[in-house]
Design a protein around this nucleic acid. Sequence first.
DNA 1: TAAGCGTGGCA
DNA 2: TTGCCAAGCTT
Length: 311
Amino acid sequence: MAARTRGPAPRRAPDDAALRRGAALAAPLAHWYARHARDLPWRHDDCSPWGVLVSEVMLQQTPVVRVLPVWTTWMERWPTPADLADAGPGAAVRAWGRLGYPRRALRLVDAATAIRDHHGGEVPSDEEALRSLPGIGEYTAAAVAAFAFGQRAVVVDTNIRRVQARAVSGRALPAPSYTAAERALATALLPAGAAESVRWNISTMELGALVCTARNPACGQCPLVDPCAWVAAGSPQDDGPPRRGQAWAGTDRQARGRIVQALRDADGPLSREQVLTASGATEMQAERCLSGLLEDGLAEGDDHTGYTLPT
DNA sequence: TAAGCGTGGCA
DNA sequence: TTGCCAAGCTT
């Protein structure tokens, strides 16, 4: 690409004022993190890249407190990717317990298998290689590169989006979906040095999790209250479109969850009748959900053998 | 791009 | 109680 020496700035470039605000955040953030960070096992120096990867997948849409016991058991049982790959999907879905989104367990097994077969059994450190693994998207690849390998990576999760929306952009909440402008801002704000960038990423995430929360942010305890653009603007309400909550009662998701729970809790195969009953749904919906679970690989079997988790 | 995909806790 | 939210990914 030709060097750009003049002309208009790129359309999505963050404005200078935002970058100046960002520059004032790193030091107080790092100081706050040193005093208030939670002691989580996947942050320990002796935690393997595999342990970090497992934690990041489990933490996708699932709170820390629920992940902690499952992660601990998981890592004792399958301390390397090869251990999980050899165990297979059924054991993984069972050990996944009630973390939710059990397809994550299947993808973790697939990722472990790819690591065993194509990466010499070692979690790759390259962000692109990570991104190509099943269940590893933009966020998780960056997080593993940063937190397991100490690399400078643009980590953007829901916490970082919210902290930067408030402290830098002066908005109550980020847009409903991740935008190119947010990615550009996070990229521009990221400190240049590897160690500094890792500290920036982890401390921003932690602040979002503990202080700059979605509801009732604890601005009185926030190290960024002084430079915060949102506080400076008077902490205005969110002016975006109303957020659409996920429907739950009566959804396929609920019925699927009940079926997988029944399969997980069963000692042996369940009959079709037992599966349909466990779903709590109408027959038509239950049939649809069972078919979906079979397609997804979260269930196995037929009317003759009965139904189980995958083997 | 938007919708589908679990589960539990909290206000 | 009901809705919102939680270290997203996939199609």
